[in-house]
Design a binder for these strands. Structure first.
Lengths: 232, 232
DNA sequence: TAGATTGTTAATCGATTAACAATC
DNA sequence: TAGATTGTTAATCGATTAACAATC
């Protein structure tokens, strides 16, 4: 939606869908209903077009589908995971108070989705000395290159707006490469060489008022089910 | 990203941008730097193209720009707000425990953005009798048409995954027209005549691992600042 | 009037999808 | 082999942007 320069030639739409396939294939692998899936079956499960999926898969390079058969679910998931550089237990740093962090885990069972919260940094002085998930909570000021030494390259930020820019600055300095921002405040100056994705709530809520009004005045109630989540 | 049928002819991209303009114009109105803005100025402030903005504004019908001058900020904001059916203090219902609700308010200063949490429904028995924001917290089971009688048409859901579908069902029955879902779980069956928008975190985080890896291996560190927020 | 900016149409661009040869 | 599905190219579709006449 904003700047985006880099070497990656994959369209952001395709990248995001690959992440989506990875999620769905993980579910299917756990369900253990079958070993093989065709692009059309996966497409149907996700409300997409089979051609879109096959085209997206071309981006991950050497592909492992069998003509006439389909894709091995475990194999395809593995291939996509590799392409995304996604480890089995993907470690992430969480920045925000422990109350907020615990709340997020309430509506986002982060570990069920394959992520491991592996470092905590809080703006709340009361969080000093607290342990969560086997980690001692550190103050935001303590964000340092020591985190990346542990293999963490991705962070999630859900601080109060007043701490947003400071947190982003420290994370960038520490060598964190990607940040998912939940805090609803303007990112005034993004550091170079880092990828920041901010999940919007404000514009989404405003759009929903439009749809609510449309649905109220429509005698023909329309199903407008939408999954909003956009990639880069 | 999924189904989307309805009478609205406006592209979801444009609708979302209109909400974005509304946010930016609100900021500008509060800043009080000036009264008038051109499409090019607004475009620059948002990293967009002026033509895109002017084209989007055609959707709100009779437009109020002055050729040679630009748009009156307050007037344009008002027009967009009307188009979105967005009241000055837009009331929303919050579904989730009070701890989670308070945490969300921590990283999303909801009232600063023009919304008013006007009803609370919690899955946590300990929340019975609690008051928050001048509202007595109700159990989720208490979700009933009484909410819509108060003028609430939009809800935000951030329950534990186990409560998601039940909450959506009750909200739909109660006459709520739009729901913003923060809970990271599959929406298995969306009721008819309702608009559900789910903010994704999982696919976003997975994409971020890809970008992190790209940035690590790129000697030419690329700025990949992105604001991810997608409309219907 | 001259300069500037809107409102709107036409051109461009890119993403999605249809089609099909390759092949399991 | 016959049937099915992939990998890939070409066609379609829609959104963004350029261009410009209208007009403040």
């Amino acid at each position: 939606m904003q700047e985006s320069s880099g070497s990656s030639s994959i369209p952001t739409e395709s990248l995001h869908r690959l992440a989506l396939y990875h999620c769905k294939l993980t579910d299917m692998l756990l369900a253990r209903h079958k070993d093989v899936i065709t692009s059309e079956e996966l497409a149907k499960a996700l409300g997409l077009n089979g051609a879109t999926i096959r085209r997206d898969l071309m981006f991950i390079g050497g592909t492992y589908g069998k003509r006439g058969t389909g894709y091995n679910i475990g194999m395809l998931r593995h291939m996509i995971g590799d392409f995304l550089s996604l480890p089995s237990f993907a470690p992430i740093a969480i920045v925000g108070s422990t109350t907020v962090a615990r709340s997020i885990f309430e509506f986002f069972p982060i570990e069920k989705f394959g992520f491991t919260p592996a470092a905590f940094f809080s703006e709340d002085p009361r969080d000093q000395g607290v342990w969560i998930n086997g980690c001692e909570v550190q103050p935001i000021e303590a964000i340092s290159p020591a985190i990346t030494a542990t293999g963490i390259r991705v962070a999630m930020v859900a601080t109060h707006p007043t701490w947003l820019m400071h947190s982003i600055g420290l994370l960038a300095q520490a060598g964190i490469k990607s940040i998912l921002v939940l805090t609803q405040a303007e990112i005034t100056k993004a550091p170079e060489g880092i990828c920041i994705m901010q999940l919007g709530i404000t514009c989404e809520l405003k759009s929903l008022f439009y749809y609510a009004s449309q649905l109220e005045h429509n005698n023909q109630p329309s199903v407008v089910k939408v999954i909003a989540d956009k990639p880069l």
